[in-house]
Design a protein around this nucleic acid. Structure first.
Lengths: 219, 219, 219, 219
DNA sequence: AATGAATGAGACTTCATTCAT
DNA sequence: TATGAATGAAGTCTCATTCAT
């Protein structure tokens, strides 16, 4: 009898204690992670919609359903939110680009890269919109911008070599046209809904194929 | 004698000050026009450089060498400066596009249009930069943006017809590729110095020609 | 066997957690006392270093190695921490002043009081620094300040009587000079390292002796 | 007749113009000067009363009868107000200390310096209160503090030489006592109304005289 | 036409304090 | 007893805009 009582007591006590004791480190860490993501996600949405300067911390907090103070519990400043968004997003984006296998591009790899680029843009339209607007209005971020650009240069070399291997008489010129096509397609996809992106992708790839085949023909 | 001269001087001075006389009115109107242009020019420079929100009226006034009060004498608000810049610039830009002669595009006219587009971009890079950044950070201007786009639609029809007349089997697809090329070239010219614009123009025109000739070949 | 040990362990643990048992109560009381002291000690250090307003509860909690919430478990407010520091420290300080034996000061007792004063200052420089800065920036504490001052008035009377008994022709004037000397020495000791405190003490005591002997001589 | 009319017109016009034309540079400069002084005076009062941190810009603006914004038109930050107060006041104070005539102190000059010191403290009690509190709670201002202290060192040398010339057997010790007396008197004058300052000054000077005469006697 | 002092709304940020766990 | 996420009031500061001159 006494035994049962003791057990009961222990149980009750342990329940009591569980309630009164602070959350575990894991729980806190989980809360922090989720809240940070919530804030960044909300901020990205507003930044992309209205621009960085036109978005106030109050708006972010309100839309995220938290107090302004809490946002500052997670980020030192509004600027830091922006920086973390750029960093996190660009990390996520660039982890998908990995074509530096052997330094040589096969036909397959080349078209894979093109398609990957379209995917990249299409899936992160909101981010790219923000990214563009930020680059346009902030001089502070120039270094970050450079580093993002520099990550692409190896790809350029690969493509140039690929064009040469395909018999291009004017590899630089062809690359200029191809990158202009990709740039144009990106801008169209990011900033307007004028063309359906699948159709655009199809036509652009066809155009690139024609450029490559033209070279062969002419040779 | 000396007395009269002095009086005369005074009189002249008072005329200068006087607003009523017809000649002064013209002069003042001229001054007003020049001041307005000065303010808009200065504002455009700062807006393009630092963004609309990051540019203060104080900065504009200081850089223009006038007082803040005077700026408000010419414009009702900072926003109005922006709007007038956009309006004035776009007017100036679009007055150059006037291909609605007979509804039919000759080869000459088509390439003239392409070249004109390059000129248009190249000569107003600062404006286009501002324009892009403004469109990116302000929802207020969406209507204005639409109206700018709509002005281009007649051109689209003309080009489409032209492509058909050139034997294009896929006029919509070809137009998509051509406008993508122009869009991409614009963005490259506006936002980077990576390619020299003359070279870019040459390559893009060549690419467009190839698209057109390809059609013929296939037919 | 192992099972029992485990059970035992559990039991022991549950005892530890249990608040009711007499021994634990004492232990917890001890813990509370230590924690309070830790918080006050930490706060005093930061307050004296950076000022009351410039020190945040976060800083105190972090430096003390506890959570903010716990600090509020021991003190109702940041202000209360300050008040308790002032109270506790002043109690500790004043408990050393106890010359109200018979209402008469002997030579020995007088110089003991002077030396005690130097000790008092020297051993609690940090506290006095805080005390001064707090008195300087808070009007709220004025009453407390008064009460601290009032505790000293009996001492004043004693000294005045002592000076008279030593044949002072101007006891109030002499007391003014002596207290000015002590005040000056206190300030120098608290706020600068310009003079070594032992030397300062020696010179001040010598000066006081001269004041007293001067009186005798003149009489 | 016409002549008179013209004159009249001119007068009227000039009045009109006078009313409408902006203030002259001199007028603006005068306004600025007065407003700055008003703000600094108000801030000094509040800083000295409640401490720097406990005083908000709102309080300053309200008490000065201006908007917060205007205060920032004259000072870049709250800190700058403090710095200008310290600088302006200390300049004003130190311009009165100028005893470096020939490097030698006569009796007259010595007592003049003592009296001057009392005057200096007495007339600027509010400033010295602020100054002390600022030194106590701000680490940033340490350099400024040093420079204020260093301005006094030549005076120290002069006094030391003076004491030697007066036959002091222990010039350093005597100086220690004298500066302790002055320090103590300063603190008493600044922070309490316990003694009337004239009486205090009299007694302190008498005490110093006794120190000097004592030396002679002993020699 | 022109000035710049002045305002006030609102931005970013901090921090004492509370509260669920 | 102990945690730290969360709040909200208040603080510093900026800036578009107004207004007397």
């Amino acid at each position: 009898m006494h035994f049962f009582l003791t057990v009961l007591n222990l149980t009750e006590r342990s329940i009591k204690i569980k309630i009164m004791s602070p959350r575990s480190a894991k729980q806190y860490s989980e809360i922090r992670k989720q809240k940070k993501e919530l804030i960044m996600e909300t901020a990205l949405e507003l930044f992309a919609q209205n621009g960085f300067h036109a978005t106030s911390m109050s708006q972010i907090a309100k839309k995220a359903g938290i107090s302004k103070g809490l946002a500052y519990n997670y980020f030192q400043s509004k600027n830091e939110i922006l920086e973390e968004i750029l960093e996190t997003s660009s990390k996520e984006i660039y982890k998908n680009i990995d074509i530096n296998h052997d330094g040589i591009l096969t036909d397959e790899e080349f078209y894979f890269f093109i398609k990957k680029t379209f995917q990249l843009i299409n899936r992160n339209r909101r981010f790219w919109k923000l990214y563009t607007s930020v680059v346009l209005q902030t001089n502070i971020l120039e270094e970050k911008n450079k580093s993002m650009v520099e990550k692409l240069t190896p790809a350029f070399d690969l493509i140039r070599n690929f064009l040469i291997s395909k018999g291009s008489k004017d590899p630089d010129g062809d690359m200029m046209v191809i990158s202009t096509l990709l740039k144009g397609a990106s801008v169209i996809m990011i900033f307007s809904d004028f063309y359906p992106s699948e159709l655009l992708e199809e036509k652009i790839i066809a155009a690139i194929q024609r450029i490559l085949s033209n070279n062969n023909v002419t040779v």
